[in-house]
Design a protein around this nucleic acid. Structure first.
Lengths: 204, 204
DNA sequence: ACACTTTTTGAACGACATGTCAAGAAGTCG
DNA sequence: CGACTTCTTGACATGTCGTTCAAAAAGTGT
């Protein structure tokens, strides 16, 4: 099992992370190997020896992003009030568009740029979206059990609605000089979820 | 004012329309002049003589798309029930993703690919989104006056929510083998608008 | 110290990008 | 019909793209 020969001069995680940052900001096609070389300090030959192709490296970066989305989705149904957490998630989209413009959501960016037509990327994007949808749904179901969300709510449909709104805000915010102008759309979506009829077991 | 010399061999509207179709499907960078040449039957030299640059031609195509979006937005507040029309608009997004995959909304596509950073494209996208938002808002306000929409609804916020959902569905549908699975999110969004409390002036 | 293995390096490749240009084709107008 | 103007044509200039490769460098293990 012991490896011989010259060892790698770069850290795999660092390369994937740097590539993720670049692909996230500029997209797949607009990020050239020259960009990667200059930002990561790794020559094309080394990248090819290590990852095989630009596309394969992109998939690694996208996979890491999707994993991070999975983690965020799993944290969604944690203890405590759920709706404020969903609200913060969506407002963060707008806040990030303001403080770090031009990135958006890499899953959505990839969908817009490469899908359909790139099957491998499609699987990763589909998986990421799926994890977010399920995370939201389970969080809403938990909130429903605690009375935070009304009993008549279809949590699955609402999860898809919130995920759709989230992706839409990523897009709209790119064209908006002041993204927080869209914040009231988030509250409008959440207002439909709260339990107005006093059937809650533990209210505010 | 009379022009002399050889007349154009192609129709301007046809060129813009063909370019729109290509840019819409593949995006700006991924559409090469060779693609345009082969699809439109016009050589690069002619395109440059007529429009100046690939970017200028793209802006013309995007401008036409934005104009079409404006028309659609203006038709939104026509007579009759508004909510079914909004519902049809959103479901059409999912239907189109199924029957004509890989196009999405050109405003959203352009936002994801070029914004921020392309100011001219940004103005067109911002204008198109703005028109859609205002069209939705005015349609909701008209529906509110007729009692179709509840009186407590914030039509501006709901318009931004619906526009965000629309753009998000365009993105999500790209990664979805069966886009109509997302249809219940549309109904969930619309359910929050209907007037449940009998304050309507003209209900069925 | 030596043989061996792997990585790094930077130049080079073919393909394709956008944009240009000179020459010929095809009209208009006196 | 002939002078003039504009458009078309397709080759070309220039640059960048993703990718490959042979040689040099830098490690490992005995």
């Amino acid at each position: 099992m012991s490896r011989t020969g010259r060892p790698r001069s770069f850290d795999d995680d660092q390369i994937i992370g740097g590539a993720l940052e670049l692909f996230w900001r500029r997209g797949y096609a607009a990020t050239s190997l020259r960009d990667l070389k200059e930002d990561l300090g790794v020559l094309p030959g080394s990248l090819y020896a290590a990852y095989g192709s630009k596309h394969a490296l992109f998939l690694r970066a996208l996979g890491r992003y999707a994993d991070a989305a999975r983690e965020q989705a799993d944290d969604m149904a944690a203890e405590g009030a759920v709706l404020p957490r969903i609200r913060a998630l969506l407002l963060d989209v707008l806040q990030a568009a303001h403080t770090t413009p031009g990135r958006g959501c890499m899953l959505g960016n990839t969908a817009a740029e490469l899908l359909p037509g790139d099957e491998a990327a499609g699987r990763l994007v589909h998986g990421g979206f799926g994890a977010l949808e399920i995370g939201l749904k389970q969080a809403l179901q938990a909130a429903q059990r605690s009375g935070e969300v009304g009993p008549a709510i279809d949590c699955g449909a609402q999860a898809r609605l919130l995920l759709g709104l989230m992706q839409g805000l990523h897009v709209l915010a790119r064209a908006e000089p002041e993204p927080l102008r869209l914040a009231d759309a988030v509250d409008a979506a959440l207002a439909a979820l709260t339990n107005h009829h006093g059937t809650d077991q533990a209210s505010q």
